[in-house]
Design a protein around this nucleic acid. Sequence first.
DNA 1: ACTTAACCTAGCAAAATAGTCAACTTTTAT
DNA 2: ATAAAAGTTGACTATTTTGCTAGGTTAAGT
Lengths: 171, 171
Amino acid sequence: MGDYPVRLTTKGRYAVTAMLDLAFHSQIKPVTLTDIAARQTISLSYLEQLFARLRRANMVKGTRGPGGGYMLANAAGDINIADIIAAVDEPLDATKCGGEANCQNEKACLTHDLWMGLSDQIRDYLKGITLGQLLEKHRVQEIAKRQDHDAHQVVELHRHSELVSSFNDLL
Amino acid sequence: MGDYPVRLTTKGRYAVTAMLDLAFHSQIKPVTLTDIAARQTISLSYLEQLFARLRRANMVKGTRGPGGGYMLANAAGDINIADIIAAVDEPLDATKCGGEANCQNEKACLTHDLWMGLSDQIRDYLKGITLGQLLEKHRVQEIAKRQDHDAHQVVELHRHSELVSSFNDLL
DNA sequence: ACTTAACCTAGCAAAATAGTCAACTTTTAT
DNA sequence: ATAAAAGTTGACTATTTTGCTAGGTTAAGT
């Protein structure tokens, strides 16, 4: 599937966090990066860097002028986590053996293939999680919390059995 | 669950790759870091750094002297990917709002909680995948490939290397 | 004794991360 | 028309992480 392994870094976390903030607040009108920066304590200029990539990846739309700001390019339910992370992360192949048949060392490529397979698993998993799902789950959780103050309900998007089964189908 | 978010970096990939190599080759006798370094094209000293952490996390056992090397501390089926990554990665809390009730900004913590929930999901997912599973999956795939290969042409590649034969006899 | 290999320590260069600063352009309200 | 709000761009800096080099010490096998 993917040519390069998935990376889960603070950069991706910033991007997902910002996109979540955007999904949450841009329901009615565009949200400025200044607002997101203030809410999420991320520097404005760093956000600008991230959103430049997100815009180029067609994940957000910016409108200029007073009353402007950013909105999601698609419905929150159509934006998945894997795409957000891919948008802000450099490809950075890290194949080492070129990925071609030029790799003579079978053993070396063995673990490489295993890791790439695992990486694809994680990517598929993240592709199955959307901003909409996260918000919806949180909304449900909030309602539950309001109804039962002490009930600490764990957010569970996918069932674990689903993950394992999808894992078993691959490789 | 976890106090800090999961990170999927090249460091973690190196660790998992090395552990996979170890799981694959240390069935009979200990494996030296020099061997792993050669096979996986990772520098010996970097491996030493990683294995120092893995050893402190009780994931591998080292034996000194000639004929020594590293072995898995537990069965490959009992070592999961999440623990390997956690062992080599710095905690680095990145909570920003302390995780306590001292965070006055509800909206800021909203996305923070959402990300932490997602992070826990990923961790659970990785906890469900063991080195043993990865090796087993690969073995099944290899056997299938070999059978397919044998069906088309008679095997003559045994002489090619002891790599293939030793590979097929494992697990 | 000698060798092998784990184990330890310090330092270092390159890269990635996170952020700053400044000078823009475009849109829109007045 | 003009000013304000907001996005756009590029260059620049500081810090951290990464991956590695070089040098040791310690334990165990021959």
